[in-house]
Design a protein around this nucleic acid. Structure first.
Lengths: 225, 225
DNA sequence: TGACACAGGATTGGATCCAAAATCTACTGT
DNA sequence: ACAGTAGATTTTGGATCCAATCCTGTGTCA
């Protein structure tokens, strides 16, 4: 599987169910607005409903589901304005995460970053691009051991995954090209361990994406259901 | 009860248990490092362990408990560095929350803010100060309807509540005086609906608190257990 | 005396059953 | 034909019981 973070919280069964649903939501099989029925998941998984309930709670904390009493869980649907604010949050939090992480990244991790970036540049598949892009950024933050910071950054990425997909599908090849050139700037700053540039470049990278996104309201129209 | 936010998520019983535990943690009856036994809470509450489990999950999402498989829930204990990074996160997120909130605050809410600030200035009790200070800030953000932003700000406040208490107890009356003068600046900017000043003042308010906290490592030493 | 192993108790994780709430459907009345 | 309502079905919330895991204290042996 490609998309990280196994939340070791909860028992073995809950963790497996959570991983399964996480994959389904981030992978786009479950879309914003979709309802998640406990019984259905439990059955498909050969477990009782209880670990499913636990899993849904974990996912809620990760921003992947939302819960209404006596009505159940859904994949949250966001407005364009909500997504824009989430990007503004990212503009402020991720530079901080990177600065905290920067001095603790090893040369092995630098090499891994180089490798991921190389694979992004060789890649042509959309879904794979989403995963690799995420992997690149998360790797740059991986030196930062502050739990609330990590989990919030992860949550912001999770919440917007579906809209990122729509947007990249729209922008296509040229969009990926821009991302790559900006990644190169970030990567250089990371390897040089230059906190000023690192902060500047990652902030600009996210800001430019937010502004681009603002020009494409159609990303938020076609929400199913 | 004084410390808001009833997380309408979960059934009636879970919500009540969550409210009870939330109050106990924020109020200081449960301290960082303390273990929370499901059976114990369930019994004291006349309910089964299941709603307690749900409640603990909710609280985990709010940053009030942490969970380890097969070992149960504890109140998280933070290092000085973690608290410092949380304050840096607040420095970046809360100005954003305030700017988003600013144009949507009504004059009734301005009046309510005035009232809360007046009550803070008249107050001498430490625990009451913690509640009122929180209420003041949350009120300034209350126009911002963006869920992830609200919940993250709340979570950051939750995580540091215990250390805020120790710190205020240390600084005493003079500390409260500084806070009040800074609140007045923020309040003025809010009433004038001046986003530049509002952002500046709230950012400075939090930053100064962070720097002050850095000079008092003893706040983080005496952690029980 | 100290370290390791084992056993018993305590505590959490999961399954099943039942109750309550919400949603859906079909019927009735105008 | 349509709106409103009552009943049936679906789905979630909670209680109880059982299983698996962890922790603690004691005893044995080197």
């Amino acid at each position: 599987m490609s998309t990280q973070q196994t939340t070791d919280t909860g028992g073995a069964a809950s963790a497996r169910v959570a991983a399964y649903l996480r994959e389904a939501i981030l992978g786009g099989q479950l879309k914003p607005g979709d309802r998640i029925r406990q019984e259905e998941v439990a059955e498909r998984f050969g477990a009782s409903r209880l670990p499913v309930r636990e899993a849904l709670r974990m996912l809620e904390a990760e921003g992947l589901t939302e819960h209404e009493p006596n009505k159940g869980a859904r994949v949250p649907r966001l407005t364009q304005h909500e997504v824009e604010v989430i990007y503004r949050m990212r503009e402020r939090l991720e530079p901080l995460a990177l600065v905290e992480s920067l001095p603790l990244l090893t040369e092995a991790e630098h090499a891994e970053l180089e490798d991921v970036q190389r694979r992004i540049e060789e890649n042509t598949d959309l879904e794979r691009f989403l995963d690799l892009d995420r992997e690149f950024h998360m790797l740059t933050y991986s030196g930062c051991g502050i739990d609330p910071l990590n989990s919030m950054v992860t949550r912001l990425w999770n919440s917007t995954q579906h809209y990122r997909r729509s947007y990249v599908a729209l922008g296509g090849r040229s969009r990926m090209w821009v991302v790559n050139s900006e990644h190169r700037l970030i990567l250089d700053a990371v390897v040089r361990r230059d906190p000023i540039d690192a902060e500047r470049f990652v902030e600009g990278h996210i800001r430019r994406t937010r502004i681009e996104l603002g020009h494409h309201p159609e990303v938020f129209d076609g929400n199913p259901r």
